[in-house]
Design a protein around this nucleic acid. Structure first.
Length: 669
RNA sequence: GGGCCAGUAGUCUAGCCUGGAUAAGGCACCUGCUUGCGGAGUAGGGAAUCGCAGGUUCAAGUCCUGCCUGGCCCGCCA
């Protein structure tokens, strides 16, 4: 990338200052609040203090001694600011050279010495992706695309959580009914129903076992998998004197509510699963524990294949959803393989020998604070408070998620010879993710831990809807996609498109609606997903951007009708007499010049949302230009050609930005 | 009790890392522009003690300290 005009001017001023004061001074430039003040501005206050001279004196000296260049129109002092006005046509000419040198404007090699792993999505295979966990996919995808665009090697990975205890009841249930019932929806959505039901049966079973241990006799009339109001009343009378009464009581009522909600919403599947479980499974809880243990060991081929069969089906559903959003995974890491590798016991052993594990009852805890104190962790991450211990093996001897995650991260970087790794995982998991890093420190691998970043993000909620996977309550991207598509069809039906064209447009617009609406938001802020806003072409939305592109492109496509040869103008850009007349043109040009720096900054701060917001600003500036500056009917040849080149440059920008965001370009819509 | 994050017009959001001039957009509301290069656009208007209180600074939405409100997490889910 060639040097930037602003930096050249800064260097020139620095040189002038050095000639008088014989030293390096801290000089920064900013954009003035209004372009009436200038195009670039240097506040002189700081050096004024350092030099004990007034900003006016310093400013005047710079004004008198700044060499005449072909880029500065004029300079002026305003308050303590040295304001510079640029020669517009020179600036644009230089910019055009820059754009034409590159195949993709803004693409570069600035991060080419890096090899980056981005892990995202990594959803539990117990149901479809919903708008909450797809936020991980979108953020991760764009971080990866940004790195690629700036020259890095990137590897996108999906960690399949196929081992958790929550999957076992699902697998058990699926085996019971799979020959009887065929899925009536997309497979991952169907599994989501199955999961909610089986989990409810599991929880009812669990609470009944608990009550039995407290002396409540099963009367033989009711099932282990069904909860009635009468039973709840009995339980509450037994619990009256217990401390835990309130907690269990509210849990009971919630379970009852979920049970009836599921029975109402998915009656057929509920009945089938309930009856099958009731007949075949004496105790779902102990069966679950057995399944989890056997699957963790990996030796029972039958159980292993039962788990895999189901997980792979759900994963295929996830992949389909991601594809709709232009998101592609390169590698999958299966949690179960880390359980089977035999490394978990080794790691636990080592942690134990180093004195970083504590046994409490039968559970085992990672001594986080001890590790942080005895290694460089606390100083490195500037942690001043005490860290609490983390359970990593439960009292049944089942190793928890964190254990496999530790082993996974011991090897993760090697899979791609990576220099850095982002784990795009929800904020909820902050402590567990910290636990993984601490364990790596404890194992004497701080160099691995320091290359791993938990890139966290806040949750997504829905306007007027709640999300709870265990209750089969969520809004999926698939659903929003379909809603959006309907709206797009409404708009398109009044235009003369072939069905095929309409399908393509509707598909690409729907996809960008969902993706962009989540992308544009600061990851640290909670999102209240609003379908209407996401698809509104008048908002800061995906469709708005796609429309802007189509509008720009249309000018160039229409040009031949007016006898204008666009290609010739572009090819001869550097010999054309550029004439920039209006504020709208000039603002847009300055913004176009900014693009490569916006991308670099977005990646430096790792804020993919800032790419989205810049794109919106650019599109808005283009629409102002479009209205203020007619292109094809401009009277003067120089003005017309200049405007063609502005449109061309805008298109180059949007192409790059769409690629970075993974949003489809539409030529017509 | 501890930790992380958020708090900006009626509403939604940007700006905070790296302090700089009159805090910027969208929606909604009011007034214009339409035989156009696609109005899915645009010009103008009203609307904000930037959660509160201190501090640092020539200068604070931005940095520091304390507090308030909300969300999430902190021993057997992931």
């Amino acid at each position: 990338m060639s040097s930037r005009v602003y930096d050249d001017i800064k260097d020139a001023i620095t040189k002038v200052l050095k000639s008088k004061y014989k030293r390096e001074l801290d000089l920064n430039w900013t954009f003035p609040r209004s372009s009436e003040l200038g195009d670039i501005s240097f506040p002189l206050f700081k050096m004024s203090k350092e030099l004990k001279e007034s900003p006016q004196e310093i400013g005047n000296f710079i004004l008198e001694n700044l060499p005449k260049t072909d880029i500065i129109e004029k300079s002026a002092l305003h308050g303590g600011f040295l304001n510079i006005f640029l020669k517009k046509s020179e600036f644009f000419s230089k910019l055009l050279n820059n754009i034409q040198e590159q195949e993709k404007y803004g693409a570069s090699r600035v991060r080419s010495n890096e090899r980056i792993i981005v892990e995202h999505t990594s959803s539990n295979p117990t149901g479809p992706l919903h708008v909450g966990n797809v936020r991980s996919s979108i953020i991760g995808d764009v971080i990866g695309r940004l790195y690629k665009f700036l020259g890095a090697e990137v590897n996108i990975r999906y960690y399949v959580n196929d081992l958790g205890r929550q999957i076992a009841p699902l697998v058990i249930g699926y085996q019971l009914v799979k020959d009887e019932i065929t899925p009536d929806t997309k497979i991952d959505l169907w599994v989501g129903k199955l999961y909610a039901i089986m989990n409810t049966l599991f929880e009812i079973n669990q609470i009944k076992n608990l009550m039995e241990s407290k002396g409540n006799k099963a009367d033989g009339k009711s099932s282990k998998y069904e909860l009635t109001e009468v039973e709840i009343a009995e339980y509450e009378s037994i619990l009256e004197n217990e401390d835990a009464e309130n907690k269990i009581s509210s849990q009971l009522n919630k379970l009852l509510r979920v049970q009836s909600s599921l029975k109402n919403r998915i009656p057929k599947l509920y009945t089938v699963l309930y009856e099958a479980t009731n007949e075949n499974i004496a105790d779902l809880n102990s069966q679950t524990t057995l399944y989890v243990k056997k699957f963790q060991e990996g030796k029972d081929k039958e159980i292993v294949s039962q788990f895999r069969e189901l997980t792979e089906k759900v994963l295929a559903g996830h992949i389909e959803t991601l594809k709709m959003l232009n998101i592609f995974i390169e590698d999958y890491d299966w949690e179960s393989t880390y359980a089977w590798s035999g490394e978990v016991p080794q790691v636990l052993d080592e942690l134990s020998k180093k004195g970083y594990l504590r046994h409490d009852d039968k559970a085992r805890l990672l001594l986080c604070d001890k590790i942080a104190r005895e290694t460089s962790y606390k100083t490195k991450y500037d942690i001043k408070h005490e860290l609490s211990d983390l359970i990593i093996v439960n009292s049944e001897g089942i190793t928890l998620y964190v254990c496999r995650d530790i082993v996974y991260h011991l090897h993760k970087l090697d899979k791609f010879d990576a220099t850095y790794c982002y784990n795009v995982i929800s904020k909820q998991q902050q402590l567990a993710q910290q636990g993984v890093k601490l364990a790596l420190y404890a194992l004497g691998k701080p160099e691995i831990a320091d290359k791993i970043e938990h890139y966290d993000y806040e949750y997504v909620s829905l306007v007027g809807r709640k999300m709870a996977g265990r209750e089969f309550e969520y809004v999926t991207p698939d659903e929003i996609y379909e809603l959006t598509q309907k709206e797009i069809y409404e708009i398109l039906k009044n235009r003369e498109y072939q069905q095929e064209q309409m399908d393509e447009i509707a598909q690409k617009v729907s996809s960008s609606s969902v993706k962009y609406h989540i992308l544009k938001m600061d990851p640290q802020k909670t999102i209240k997903f609003d379908v209407k806003k996401a698809a509104d072409p008048n908002e800061n939305s995906g469709p708005f951007l796609q429309y802007s592109f189509a509008r720009a492109l249309n000018i160039l496509l229409k040009a031949p009708d007016k006898g204008i040869d666009v290609k010739e103008i572009i090819d001869n850009a550097n010999s054309i007499d550029l004439k920039i007349e209006s504020e709208a043109e000039w603002n847009l040009i300055k913004m176009i010049e900014d693009l490569p720096h916006v991308l670099i900054k977005s990646l430096k701060t790792v804020k993919p949302d800032s790419v989205a917001n810049f794109t919106y600003s650019l599109a808005a500036a283009f629409h102002k230009f479009y209205d203020a500056c007619p292109v094809l009917i401009a009277k003067e040849a120089a003005v017309l050609q200049t405007r063609i080149l502005i449109v061309y440059s805008t298109i180059k920008c949007l192409e790059s930005l769409f690629e970075v965001m993974g949003i489809d370009i539409l030529e017509k819509m």
